[in-house]
Design a binder for these strands. Structure first.
Length: 356
DNA sequence: TCTGGGGTCCTCCGCCTG
DNA sequence: TCTGCAGGCGGAGGACCC
């Protein structure tokens, strides 16, 4: 396998700079309200010099750089740019796996026999992306996904890193474990507490050491990846597994009727998305986040799928009531989601009477 | 009065059934 | 009839990703 990983550099911020050239050269943060509860989605490289990064609260970003410009994300605009990028990429490499608006894997082995040719292809891809959209992309090339992804992150912005076959483990060894896909804040804390800071250290753990730090198949998976062992193929996009909507309030909300109204509105939008995809859902889930950031969810699975917004809303509200009966109090977020999705079909009379 | 939104996947537990 | 067990499934929560 020869896999490429393409990552658009500071994508949301780069698009905003293209759309509003007067923002170029200024610290730019795409995200929520710096005076509210928003977080940073993307910061441009000028803003990153102030230590501003993704997922930081916008209030903190403002403290770090009071002269930063804050803009709200324009998802539709980014989707348009993203579609243009991937259309350009497919001109060079037909098989791609989009893992987000701004990144994805490329099956370079489909059109390249060796790594020298794969490097040329990667350069060609960077050029067509720049030509089609004026956006800069970084690319990593390797025999597996985990190496390609770490490689694409290595020389940002606009970099190209090729990991020759047989050098996977040696390439990954010096990087922090946090850069490994699957290692989040929790896993990183556990690994650091055990003295495991780099991927090389993780790769060298014995079975017994691994069991005490990261038990279960997750631990084995992470160690394999740290060793450059990753057989995941390029996968073409499939149907979504769930659809959801949620909202964080500017101030915590106690009023039950307000929460019901919010859920009902969200249920309508979820149902619209379901209908758009020609799907129904059997499982409805209501999610609450309390002021202490703890999350409660309550769900219900129906014998047959539904796509009616009013019905989803009713179920979501009754699940909310159940959750609030278990733990009363104000909440900072409510959301409704549907899963166990099925293709839409006509109900038989028997199913309809059961569902009702 | 730090901490979004929309997803996926994994794990654990309890219940039911054979 | 009772008990133990395994497997499937729903429900809940946690962790992670972009």
């Amino acid at each position: 396998m020869i896999i490429g990983h393409l990552d658009l550099d500071a994508f949301f911020a780069a698009v905003e700079e293209l759309e509003q050239p007067e923002l170029r050269g200024r610290p730019l943060v795409v995200g929520g309200d710096p005076h509210g509860r928003g977080v940073v989605a993307t910061a441009n490289y000028e803003a990153r010099r102030y230590g501003i990064g993704s997922a930081m609260s916008c209030a903190e970003a403002l403290r770090r750089c009071p002269r930063a410009v804050f803009v709200h994300p324009r998802k539709g605009l980014y989707s348009t740019y993203s579609d243009a990028v991937w259309a350009a990429v497919r001109e060079v490499v037909p098989t791609v796996e989009r893992t987000g608006l701004d990144e994805g894997y490329l099956d370079l082995g489909e059109v390249a026999d060796d790594f020298a040719r794969a490097r040329e292809l990667a350069e060609a891809i960077q050029a067509v992306v720049r030509g089609a959209t004026r956006l800069s992309a970084s690319v990593g090339v390797a025999t597996c996904k985990v190496c390609a992804k770490v490689a694409s992150d290595r020389r940002k912005p606009g970099g190209l890193t090729v990991v020759p076959p047989g050098r996977e483990a040696a390439f990954l060894a010096p990087f922090d474990v946090r850069l490994l896909a699957g290692v989040g804040p929790r896993a990183e804390a556990r690994l650091l507490a055990a003295g495991v800071r780099t991927m090389g250290a993780l790769a060298g753990l014995s079975d017994a050491e691994l069991r005490s730090i990261a038990p279960g198949k997750v631990g084995r998976l992470l160690r394999d990846r740290a060793r450059g062992v990753d057989a995941r193929p390029i996968e073409l996009g499939g149907e979504p597994v769930s659809i959801s909507q949620e909202e964080t309030f500017e101030r915590d909300v106690l009023d039950r009727s307000r929460l019901h109204a919010e859920l009902t509105t969200m249920a309508t939008r979820v149902a619209e998305n379901l209908t758009l995809g020609g799907r129904t859902a059997r499982t409805i889930t209501t999610k609450l986040r309390y002021p202490d950031f703890s999350i409660r969810s309550r769900s219900q699975t129906l014998p047959v799928g539904i796509d009616d917004g009013a019905r989803i809303g009713e179920l979501a509200c009754s699940l909310l009531d159940r959750a609030l009966a278990d733990r009363p109090g104000a909440v900072r977020l409510v959301g409704v989601g549907v899963s166990s999705l099925e293709p839409h079909r006509q109900l038989t009379l028997l199913e309809a009477s059961t569902e009702a």
